[in-house]
């Protein structure tokens, strides 16, 4: 290896390390802050380790600390119903993901494996939705939810995105188009109708892309902020993203309980981090795949 090549590789590795550090450091900082005493932190803000290690912030975030305990560690009076918000997020993201993936798969099957009049026209019309940014339909959809009396309910949060997702249908259709016809034809010759072929053959063969979509849809919905912000106004259905933002905005700026807030943030991000640990590889590959499609 010549000297410039070695140097080039060195620079490249150096760049990569810096990028990785910037990417990961905030996650470490969440953990470090969440394990610190909020009062003590202001005396030693640049310590790279937790300051006066304590589980207090997590207790405050989960509502397990007594007011005296909270005050002693610099917790503010602001409360966050983390358990409820966590449950709301699970319901919101879970139900929406399940429904949208199932309906998208059914539609994708009809668009890829069945021959029917008007198929390509209907598909083309549905695809136009890919080109319209959500910003344009959010306000009218809010008005619609209000007209239907569904504000502040799971139905109102879930319905608008549950039945139809242009991206999911497109993604699954592309995959199903590539499936071999042989097994399917054998089943048809054996007398299976289109529904049986769908549920017994094509959908089981499409489990992998459906899992990918489930993952991507769940992440997107879990992290969604704007739509829940529009349609919810109290904590009974409010998901985590909103609960966190409200918690920060309702605390006085001067005495913000950063340790408690970071503990709550960690709890909110934890399900995503778990998904990452379990499905990280699949996720990386599927992102690549969505790009090449």
């Amino acid at each position: 290896m010549t000297f410039p090549v070695k140097l080039g590789r060195g620079v490249a590795w150096g760049y990569l390390v810096v990028v990785l550090l910037i990417t990961i450091f905030p996650f470490y900082w969440i953990v470090r802050t969440a394990l610190s005493n909020n009062f003590a932190m202001s005396t030693d803000p640049s310590s790279l380790l937790p300051v006066h290690f304590t589980w207090g912030p997590f207790k405050r975030a989960l509502g397990l600390a007594t007011p005296a305990e909270a005050a002693a560690e610099g917790g503010s009076g602001a409360k966050i119903e983390l358990g409820l918000a966590l449950w709301n997020s699970v319901v919101y993201a879970g139900v929406l993901t399940l429904v949208t993936v199932v309906f998208s798969a059914l539609a994708a099957y009809a668009f890829s494996r069945l021959r029917w009049k008007g198929r390509d026209v209907v598909f083309g019309v549905l695809l136009t939705a890919l080109m319209v940014p959500s910003v344009f339909t959010l306000l009218p959809n809010f008005v619609l939810m209000k007209d239907l009396g569904l504000l502040n309910s799971f139905a109102g949060m879930i319905l608008p995105s549950a039945f139809f997702s242009a991206f999911n249908i497109f993604f699954l259709r592309q995959f199903m188009l590539g499936l071999s016809h042989e097994v399917e034809e054998a089943a048809i010759i054996d007398g299976a109708g289109p529904l049986r072929v769908c549920f017994r053959i094509v959908l089981p063969m499409s489990v992998a892309p459906m899992a990918t979509l489930t993952l991507l849809q769940f992440i997107t919905t879990w992290n969604d902020y704007f739509w829940p912000l529009l349609v919810t106004n109290d904590e009974s259905v409010r998901p985590l993203t909103l609960a966190l933002a409200v918690f920060k905005q309702s605390s006085p700026q001067a005495s913000l309980d950063w340790a408690g807030l970071m503990a709550a943030t960690l709890v909110a991000a934890l399900p995503m981090l778990l998904l990452f640990v379990v499905f990280g590889r699949r996720l990386v590959n599927s992102i690549g795949f969505t790009g090449i499609k």
Binding site: F103, S104, L106, A107, Y109, A110, F111, L114, R115, W116, K117, R119, V122, V125, L126, A129, V132, F136, T137, P140, N141, V143, L144, L159, P160, S161, A162, F163, F164, I169, G193, P194, L195, C198
Partner: peptide
Amino acid sequence: DTWVAWLLVAPAVLGFGVFFAYPMLR
């Protein structure tokens, strides 16, 4: 097939109409 196909795409078409096309026009 046509009958089944429309049954299968019905949720998507319904969702498209009610929560996308109609709000857009509105």
